[in-house]
Amino acid sequence: MKLSINKLLLTALLACFMAACSDDKPQPAPVPEKPQQTAAPAVPELPKPAVKKPVIKPKPQQQQNVTYTAAQLTARLKEWDKKLDTLSTLFKQNTSYDGVEVSRSQGALFYDKVQNFLRLDTFARTGETEQSAVTNKKEIIILDETGSKVTTLSWKEWQQGQPNQALFDFGNYTALVDKHNASVQSQNTDEAVLVLTPKDGSDYTLYLTLSKRDFFPLVIAIEAELMLTRAELSDTRKNTPLEAYVFGGFLK
């Protein structure tokens, strides 16, 4: 009986010892839980840049070389004669005899159709005005370089002394053309040369180089025997207001 009790006590002690031993063993460290990953915010898609298409410039159209008859050119010239109200233009003029230059001049010309006023400024080689002539095509007033009156002449007398009278015929081209026979000397894409010979048999030939863009004179030339006077116009302004100083009360 005692032996059984002792066995029971021994078994209990062994159980306690085993439990104590098991409690002394190091416990494994707890595994940390992985943090929950939050989904990254969606990045909005940027609009794709528009692809610019290359601009294809149309090829400039070549101006056609239209050929005009003398009748067509004189008709266009007369049209300008009717609608020209004011004019300002620069000119360079030279006179040659048998191919040898004998004189050269340059200046500016102004015309007012309503008042029938014409002004011619002659420039020195430096470009300064050295003399002016203002006329109503009845009388002509000559001014010096300061604009002071020098003398008064007859318009017809003064005009007859000019080597290129057609340079002063703006506003009177209809009558001029009607007094001449017309032909075409030459023409290209940009201009045409109209030739006028007097119907009364006078011995001279008038050449008008007309722009095919607006049929206004670019060059006015007159040839008589061996003498040729040629005036080239530039910076021409048609039907634009003229400055007050141009005719400035010289004529009434």
Score class of each variant (00 low, 15 high):
residue 40 A to P: 15
residue 71 A to Q: 13
residue 157 E to P: 05
residue 39 A to C: 02
residue 23 D to V: 13
residue 167 L to V: 10
residue 49 P to M: 11
residue 6 N to M: 08
residue 229 T to D: 04
residue 8 L to H: 07
residue 72 Q to D: 03
residue 30 P to H: 08
residue 115 Q to D: 11
residue 130 E to D: 12
residue 28 P to Q: 06
residue 121 D to H: 11
residue 91 F to E: 03
residue 103 S to Q: 12
residue 94 N to W: 08
residue 55 V to M: 06
residue 220 I to E: 01
residue 52 K to P: 05
residue 200 D to M: 01
residue 1 M to C: 05
residue 94 N to V: 10
residue 162 Q to N: 14
residue 49 P to R: 10
residue 11 T to N: 04
residue 181 N to S: 07
residue 230 R to V: 13
residue 217 P to A: 02
residue 156 K to E: 12
residue 183 S to D: 12
residue 184 V to I: 14
residue 231 A to D: 04
residue 237 R to E: 12
residue 128 E to S: 13
residue 17 F to M: 04
residue 18 M to P: 00
residue 185 Q to N: 08
residue 84 L to F: 08
residue 202 S to A: 13
residue 214 D to K: 00
residue 85 D to V: 09
residue 135 T to L: 01
residue 117 F to Q: 04
residue 70 A to H: 08
residue 240 T to S: 06
residue 232 E to W: 01
residue 1 M to I: 13
residue 43 V to L: 11
residue 155 W to Q: 00
residue 70 A to D: 00
residue 60 P to R: 06
residue 216 F to R: 00
residue 161 G to R: 10
residue 17 F to C: 09
residue 122 T to V: 13
residue 39 A to R: 10
residue 93 Q to I: 04
residue 135 T to K: 08
residue 162 Q to Y: 11
residue 69 T to G: 04
residue 229 T to Y: 09
residue 218 L to H: 03
residue 13 L to G: 01
residue 60 P to N: 04
residue 1 M to N: 11
residue 170 F to G: 00
residue 3 L to G: 12
residue 251 L to M: 08
residue 29 A to T: 12
residue 169 D to T: 11
residue 117 F to I: 03
residue 140 I to W: 08
residue 166 A to W: 11
residue 172 N to G: 11
residue 116 N to T: 11
residue 177 V to D: 00
residue 173 Y to L: 02
residue 106 Q to N: 02
residue 177 V to P: 00
residue 147 G to E: 03
residue 79 E to R: 02
residue 165 Q to N: 10
residue 61 Q to L: 05
residue 18 M to V: 15
residue 32 P to W: 14
residue 19 A to K: 07
residue 188 N to C: 07
residue 44 P to R: 05
residue 155 W to L: 01
residue 81 D to K: 01
residue 186 S to C: 01
residue 174 T to H: 08
residue 14 L to F: 15
residue 4 S to W: 12
residue 40 A to H: 11
residue 153 L to F: 09
residue 114 V to S: 15
residue 184 V to S: 05
residue 113 K to P: 03
residue 147 G to W: 10
residue 123 F to D: 00
residue 226 L to R: 08
residue 43 V to Q: 10
residue 107 G to I: 02
residue 169 D to Q: 14
residue 136 N to V: 06
residue 236 T to N: 01
residue 101 E to I: 14
residue 183 S to K: 06
residue 211 S to E: 02
residue 59 K to F: 06
residue 167 L to S: 10
residue 208 L to M: 05
residue 88 S to R: 12
residue 57 K to N: 12
residue 55 V to T: 10
residue 184 V to C: 04
residue 89 T to F: 07
residue 165 Q to R: 12
residue 237 R to Q: 15
residue 148 S to M: 07
residue 188 N to T: 12
residue 11 T to F: 13
residue 22 S to Y: 15
residue 123 F to M: 02
